[in-house]
Amino acid sequence: SKDTIRINGIDIDVKDLHEEWKRLVEEALKRGDEELAIELLERALKE
């Protein structure tokens, strides 16, 4: 798994994120759902 995830052309540092969150965000991006990916990231970062 990578340490960054690219959303809207912005590389976001996710190395401190739990693997499960990372996977969910990557799944959302694979489906092209950037809005969901951002929402998941925000939730993950609050934890």
Score class of each variant (00 low, 15 high):
Ser1His: 13
Ser1Val: 12
Lys2Gln: 14
Lys2Ala: 14
Lys2Arg: 13
Asp3Trp: 00
Asp3Cys: 06
Asp3Gln: 08
Asp3Val: 11
Asp3Asn: 08
Asp3Ser: 11
Asp3Gly: 08
Thr4Gln: 09
Thr4Trp: 04
Ile5Ala: 03
Ile5Thr: 02
Ile5Asn: 02
Arg6Ile: 07
Arg6Cys: 08
Arg6His: 11
Ile7Arg: 02
Ile7Ser: 02
Asn8Ala: 12
Asn8His: 14
Asn8Trp: 01
Asn8Ile: 04
Asn8Val: 04
Gly9Ala: 04
Gly9Phe: 05
Ile10Ala: 09
Ile10Leu: 13
Asp11Pro: 06
Asp11Gln: 08
Asp11Tyr: 09
Ile12Trp: 15
Ile12Pro: 01
Ile12Gln: 04
Asp13Thr: 09
Asp13Glu: 08
Asp13Leu: 10
Asp13Tyr: 10
Val14Gly: 03
Val14Tyr: 10
Lys15Cys: 05
Lys15Trp: 05
Lys15Gly: 13
Lys15Ala: 11
Asp16Arg: 10
Asp16Ala: 13
Asp16Cys: 15
Asp16Ser: 12
Leu17Ala: 02
Leu17Lys: 01
Leu17Glu: 00
Leu17Asp: 01
His18Asp: 15
His18Thr: 15
His18Trp: 07
His18Gly: 13
Glu19Met: 04
Glu19Gln: 05
Glu20Phe: 13
Glu20Ser: 10
Glu20Leu: 06
Trp21Tyr: 13
Trp21Gln: 14
Lys22Ala: 09
Lys22His: 10
Lys22Arg: 15
Lys22Leu: 15
Arg23Glu: 13
Arg23Ala: 11
Arg23Ile: 10
Arg23Leu: 07
Leu24His: 03
Leu24Glu: 06
Leu24Tyr: 03
Val25Arg: 00
Val25Pro: 00
Val25Ser: 00
Val25Glu: 00
Glu26Ser: 07
Glu26Asn: 11
Glu26Arg: 10
Glu27Tyr: 01
Glu27His: 03
Glu27Asp: 12
Glu27Ser: 04
Ala28Arg: 00
Ala28Gly: 00
Ala28Lys: 00
Leu29Glu: 00
Leu29Pro: 00
Leu29Ile: 10
Leu29Arg: 02
Leu29Ala: 04
Lys30Asn: 11
Lys30Tyr: 09
Lys30Cys: 02
Lys30Phe: 10
Lys30Pro: 00
Lys30Ile: 13
Arg31Asn: 10
Arg31Phe: 10
Arg31Asp: 08
Arg31Ser: 08
Arg31Thr: 10
Arg31His: 12
Arg31Ala: 14
Gly32Met: 04
Gly32Tyr: 03
Gly32Arg: 02
Asp33Trp: 05
Asp33Ile: 03
Asp33Leu: 12
Asp33Thr: 02
Glu34Ile: 11
Glu34Ala: 13
Glu35Leu: 14
Glu35Cys: 15
Glu35Lys: 15
Leu36Lys: 11
Leu36Gly: 12
Leu36Thr: 08
Ala37Asn: 00
Ala37Leu: 05
Ala37His: 00
Ala37Cys: 03
Ala37Arg: 00
Ile38Asn: 07
Ile38Leu: 14
Ile38Arg: 15
Ile38His: 08
Ile38Asp: 02
Glu39Val: 14
Glu39Gln: 11
Glu39Cys: 13
Glu39Arg: 15
Glu39Thr: 12
Leu40His: 02
Leu40Ser: 01
Leu40Glu: 01
Leu41Gly: 01
Leu41Ala: 04
Leu41Cys: 03
Leu41Asn: 00
Glu42Met: 07
Glu42Asn: 13
Glu42Ile: 08
Glu42Arg: 08
Arg43Cys: 09
Arg43Met: 12
Arg43Ser: 07
Arg43Leu: 10
Arg43Ile: 09
Arg43His: 08
Arg43Val: 06
Arg43Gly: 04
Ala44Pro: 00
Ala44Arg: 01
Ala44Ser: 05
Ala44Thr: 01
Ala44Ile: 06
Leu45Gly: 07
Leu45Cys: 08
Leu45Trp: 06
Leu45Pro: 04
Leu45Tyr: 06
Lys46Asn: 10
Lys46His: 08
Lys46Tyr: 03
Lys46Arg: 14
Glu47Gly: 07
Glu47Ile: 05
Glu47Met: 05
Glu47Arg: 03
Glu47Leu: 03
